[in-house]
């Protein structure tokens, strides 16, 4: 594998990145957060491993928005595994390779073990949390994209709409401009961009 990343998910929605091993993995996580689709999202929602051995191939059409920028960044094969402890899921592990090719049985088995270890690590960090808060180590080590939610609040006032709809507008803008959602959100929060 060329890179790996771990994302937290809640209610079927990507909520943040716990870690990523390189810039491409970070981008793959950001794409999934921005677009709401990709191998990690599918692994989490479907509760099973996901494999796309040839992301640039003609068969790889399941993620219409995710695939072109992922391939452009250098990901040629992507894999997703749910982060689970027993029946409980907390996020997803996503892997990529810069060459096309299937994941072999050993790698698959190792990825399952790693996803289990990562899930337990997340829960162990959350076990240290004060009531109602995110575990301190988990919060410090992760990126929950809070700026996106601040921007949603601002855009909801600018357009006189609900925060949910404001988030959808931010996503649409990020997709149209081919930029990460958090970059568009930062422009709003720093008052370089207004939605009117």
């Amino acid at each position: 594998m060329t890179g790996a990343g771990i994302m937290l998910m809640s209610g079927g929605v990507a909520q943040g990145s716990v870690c990523s091993s390189n810039a491409v993995s970070a981008l793959l996580e950001d794409l999934q957060f921005t677009l709401g689709e990709g191998p990690g999202v599918d692994a989490f929602t479907g509760d099973h491993p996901v494999a796309e051995a040839d992301l640039a191939g003609p068969q790889a059409s399941r993620w219409v928005a995710f695939t072109p920028p992922a391939v452009a960044a250098g990901a040629r094969a992507v894999f997703g595994f749910p982060l689970r402890v027993g029946a409980v899921r907390v996020g997803a592990l996503h892997l990529y390779r810069d060459q096309p090719g299937a994941i072999d049985d050993d790698q698959h088995a190792n990825a399952l073990v790693l996803a289990g270890v990562a899930a337990r690590a997340v829960l162990t960090m959350q076990a240290e949390a004060a009531p109602g808060l995110i575990g301190p180590e988990l919060e410090a080590g992760s990126d929950f994209h809070f700026v996106v939610h601040e921007a949603s609040g601002m855009v909801s006032v600018q357009l006189d709409i609900g925060v949910g709809e404001a988030l959808a507008r931010l996503r649409a803008r990020a997709f149209a401009e081919d930029r990460p959602l958090s970059a568009v959100a930062l422009d709003v929060v720093e008052r370089r961009v207004r939605f009117t």
Partner: peptide
């Protein structure tokens, strides 16, 4: 936490 961040945005704006 997300609700707090959203409210910061609303109040800030």
């Amino acid at each position: 936490r997300i609700v707090i961040e959203q409210a910061k945005g609303v109040l800030g704006e």
